[in-house]
C-alpha cells in the first residue's frame, strides 16, 4: 500500500532526510504501481461491459436463488449420486494414473539422482508443459480424441497432475540428506536399492502429502470437466442448466460443495499425520 510512499524530508536543516528505500528501489516500486494502475484504468475504460447488467445483477442473482429453492432432493438418488461418484473416480484414477509419468519424470528431473543436464532439462520441459495447460483444455483435447465420457476426464486430470506432482516430488528428492545415499553407495548397493532404501524413505512423507494435495485439487477440477463433456457431475450440471432445471442445479452444486468440504477436511487431517 503505502509502504513505498513514505519519504518525508524535514524542513529544518541539520537533520537528515527520512527515506525508507534507496532511490532505485523506490523507482522500481513506483513503476510497478504505476504500470498496474495504468493497466487497470486502461482496462476499465476499454472493457466491453454493459453497466446496467451490473446494477441488475443483485436482482438477477436473487431471482436465480429463488428459482433454485427448494432443491430437487429427488434427483440425488437418481442422477446426482452416480455422477458424483464418477467425479470422484475421475479425480482418483486421474491422480493414480499421473503417478506413472510423474515418478519417472521426477527422478529424471532431480539433479542429485540423474547427473545428466540433458535429461534434467527434458524432464523439466515435460513437467512445465503439463502444468501450463489447464485441465479444461486437456479435457477438450481428449474429448475430441476419445469422445465424451469418463475416459477423457481421467486422462485430462492425469496429464494436468503430472507436472504438479512431478515438480514437487522432485523437489522433495533434491532435499534428501545425501549422507545416507553415500553410505548406501559405499556398501556397494545397486542403484535400484539406493533409490529404494535411501531416497524413497526420506522423500516418502512429502510424496504422499503432495499426492493427497493434488487429489484434493483434482476433485474440485473434475467437478467442472463435465461442462466440456468429460464425464462426472459437470455433465449433470450442464444438462440441468441448459434445461433451466434450477432446483436440480442447486442440488448438484450442494453435492459438490459438501463433497469438496469433506475431502478437504480428510486431506488436511491425513496430511497433519504425515508431516
Amino acid at each position: 500500500m503505502n509502504s513505498s510512499s513514505a519519504s518525508i524530508s524535514t524542513k529544518t536543516g541539520g537533520n537528515p532526510k527520512w527515506q525508507r528505500f534507496t532511490a532505485a528501489e523506490r523507482t522500481a516500486r513506483y513503476m510497478v504501481y504505476l504500470v498496474v494502475l495504468a493497466a487497470f484504468f486502461a482496462s476499465l475504460r476499454t472493457v466491453e461491459i454493459i453497466p446496467e447488467f451490473l446494477y441488475d445483477a443483485p436482482e438477477q442473482l436473487a431471482d436465480m436463488f429463488t428459482r433454485m429453492w427448494p432443491m430437487d432432493f429427488a434427483s440425488y438418488p437418481t442422477t446426482i449420486h452416480g455422477a458424483m461418484l464418477d467425479t470422484l473416480h475421475i479425480a482418483t484414477l486421474g491422480t493414480l494414473l499421473s503417478l506413472l509419468l510423474a515418478i519417472p519424470l521426477a527422478l529424471l528431473n532431480a539433479r542429485n539422482i540423474v547427473q545428466s543436464l540433458w535429461l534434467n532439462w527434458i524432464a523439466k520441459f515435460f513437467l512445465v508443459s503439463s502444468r501450463s495447460v489447464n485441465s479444461l483444455i486437456w479435457a477438450l483435447l481428449f474429448v475430441a480424441i476419445f469422445g465424451p465420457g469418463v475416459l477423457a476426464g481421467v486422462l485430462a486430470v492425469a496429464l494436468r497432475s503430472v507436472g504438479f506432482v512431478g515438480k514437487l516430488f522432485s523437489e522433495a528428492l533434491e532435499e534428501v540428506n545425501m549422507g545416507t545415499v553415500e553410505a548406501l553407495k559405499a556398501t556397494g548397493a545397486s542403484p535400484a536399492s539406493v533409490l529404494l532404501k535411501a531416497y524413497w524413505p526420506q522423500a516418502k512423507p512429502a510424496f504422499y502429502s503432495v499426492v493427497l494435495f493434488r487429489w484434493d485439487i483434482n476433485v474440485r477440477e473434475s467437478a467442472v470437466l463435465g461442462l466440456v463433456g468429460a464425464g462426472g457431475i459437470g455433465v449433470v450440471l450442464n444438462d440441468a442448466m441448459n434445461l433451466f432445471q434450477w432446483p436440480k442445479v442447486a442440488m448438484a452444486l450442494t453435492a459438490i460443495f459438501v463433497v469438496v468440504l469433506l475431502i478437504e477436511l480428510l486431506v488436511v487431517n491425513v496430511r497433519k499425520r504425515l508431516i
Binding site: 500500500m1 503505502n2 510512499s5 513514505a6 518525508i8 524535514t10 524542513k11 529544518t12 537533520n15 537528515p16 527520512w18
Partner: peptide
C-alpha cells in the same frame, strides 16, 4: 497515519 504524514516538528523531535 496512512499517508505517513507526520508533523515536521514531530520528525525533528524524533531525531
Amino acid at each position: 497515519a496512512w499517508r505517513r504524514k507526520f508533523k515536521p516538528e514531530d520528525i525533528d523531535r524524533a531525531f
